[in-house]
Design a protein around this nucleic acid. Structure first.
Lengths: 209, 209, 209, 209
DNA sequence: TATGAATGAGCCTTCATTCAT
DNA sequence: CATGAATGAAGGCTCATTCAT
């Protein structure tokens, strides 16, 4: 799925990139604070440091801002995750470290991730599809890591179980943000990571009773 | 936390109850279709079968409708869950059956649950607190079930692990709705229930390798 | 061609009619003064005696106001014309009196007619078609009158000439408004009517040299 | 009445002329397509082949473009008309040929003439006066031609009748454009010219019955 | 001279809420 | 109690015009 083209009246691509970065930064702050629907385009422009007219030089509609925000957050999450993956780790340790890295990234970008989680549904259908595709790709990253491990150590785990485990990892990452009102009272990130890892990976490291 | 009082101009409590039921029914349909923010009060009134003036005889603001909707959905989920719990089951079977019952209820009310998940954040703070409290109570239901089992069978599971497991159950139930775009392609409800159960309960039924 | 339905949120048809009459009255005043495009919906609402919100209870868009205005002007012109037609007149006198009546009506409604002339082009296609249809009908009225005369007195005038004569009458009526900057300096309405009548009807009353 | 001065930041008169010609050409195309109010200055600049900044180097406001357009169209109509006038014709034939030439020019420039007819009203007062002056001059051209004929052949036609006849010629020319939705279905240009000529000139060529 | 990014006043339209009947 | 017409603040977006480069 190709990146949806957000229309811009400005030709200088360098400038477009810069302005959209400002815009995303400002919009995220506002969406975190009050949500997409309660944020006005004027507020976004102001928070981004330019006028309403200028805002519309770089987007076609308010929904485009949401799309840019979601896209940027996904990119950021994936980039940070990739840069934190320990490429030297082997065995179950590799899986554990991937999960830990992922949770760390989510924790680091918790506000952003939460925004995306709560507002992506307001995207127009096509843009939503594109964003969900990103989620699919991220799920596949974990599938691959698990599948590698399963293959190498001849673990008895079906393809379905691998896929589900991967989904669970993703969701438990998000859960750290959207359930933080309950969970952060109970655990630190390290504790959460350790407990979830053990739980998640229990099928990989135990034998049935 | 006490149920938040939604103001009504009408004295007859019987009538208030009836009208609000109509209202919730209508609103849920609309929120499922287009979300809270894109639904107008006029539409809610119409879908509920009365006029906009009448709508405001039974609520104080649009947000009250959302609150009533969330509240009703929680009640419904809890009621259905309670009625489906197999009170005769014992051992790990009791836990499994509780999970299965919960997932069944979620599946049955998937649209409603999804709406609540996506829109609750738009509630005013106080109302949100109240709704989250309901979530806490539901989590506690599962905590209790697990704790009973752990106690009886002297499983080596800490209080923190019990709480987390309970949260995971809840979230995996919701996940069946908010990730259905991916998950329903892979599993039927029965498969999903089975796989998640095994995974979730693996710490209760296996011994470390 | 059926009358285009202008959407209204208000059910009471009596009220709709009344409010739209206010609206047309106010809008005509403004369109005369500054044209359709330079008139804002707020101004229309204010001039009509109600709020902007109320305005939109009775129309779907600004263009609807223009449509209502054009429609109302046509109705008015036709009604006044019909009521002024001398049904007892016979011979060339009947034609002359019809022209005179028409010019009188145009003079009476000159501002309105001018507005319609200048702004109708801004109507959406469908509405424009409807309005042009009204113009066609009015042209036919004169065709019929001329045709009757031609038939009765066995005048040597082809169908094409009849049609063209009718168009010329219509346009010379409008000309009294859109060329008034030049023509009203030269003639009173009576003089204009007399001269144009003679000129127009010369093919009916003379023999070729 | 002197030509209204349109302000320009550019000194080189040669260049000013060239750019304004580009501009008029582009603007006419756009005005024909969507009218003056629905055309943006950006579009005019683009269609003219330069940037919005450059556009404003050669005009002071959007209305200046309309003025330049109207002025150019008038010039064009007059130039073409003058070049087509048969200076050798005599008698009634001279008048007929002038009318035919005029109608031919109008037909040739029908889109342009229509634009001018529909949009001139949006000119600021002073510019409108200037444009109307051009119309007066054109009317006088026909007055003169008719007056010559009337004088030479001692036709019984008052000065008022001459003036009105001239206005009618002008308007019937325009009518070929603004009523084309009805008239072009009925007549070819040649038929229209012939019929209107006969009708118009009937007072010059017939004797009263 | 030419460019095009920036500006912000202002436009059309929506919709939660009120209140007279 | 029920109705629905009226209200107007507020929102998304456009576009003529300016000005630094």
């Amino acid at each position: 799925m190709k990146k949806k083209a957000v229309p811009s009246m400005v030709k200088d691509q360098q400038l477009v990139k810069k302005r959209r970065e400002q815009m995303v930064k400002g919009a995220v702050r506002l969406f975190i604070e009050k949500g997409f629907h309660r944020t006005t385009t004027r507020e976004i422009a102001k928070e981004s440091g330019f006028s309403i007219g200028t805002l519309y030089e770089y987007i076609g509609s308010k929904e485009d801002v949401l799309y840019l925000v979601c896209d940027a957050i996904y990119e950021e999450v994936r980039d940070q995750l990739v840069s934190q993956l320990d490429t030297e780790a082997v065995g179950i340790d590799r899986v554990k470290k991937a999960i830990a890295a992922y949770f760390r990234v989510i924790d680091h970008l918790q506000d952003e991730v939460l925004v995306m989680y709560q507002e992506a549904k307001s995207l127009p259908k096509e843009a939503l599809m594109y964003v969900l595709q990103k989620e699919v790709e991220m799920t596949k990253m974990f599938e691959d890591i698990i599948r590698d491990y399963v293959a190498e150590y001849r673990i008895d785990l079906s393809e379905e179980e691998i896929k589900l485990m991967s989904h669970n990892i993703l969701v438990q990452g998000h859960m750290w943000t959207f359930r933080r009102w309950a969970i952060r009272r109970l655990y630190t990130l390290e504790e959460y990571t350790k407990l979830q890892s053990e739980q998640l990976l229990s099928p990989l490291t135990t034998v049935s009773n």
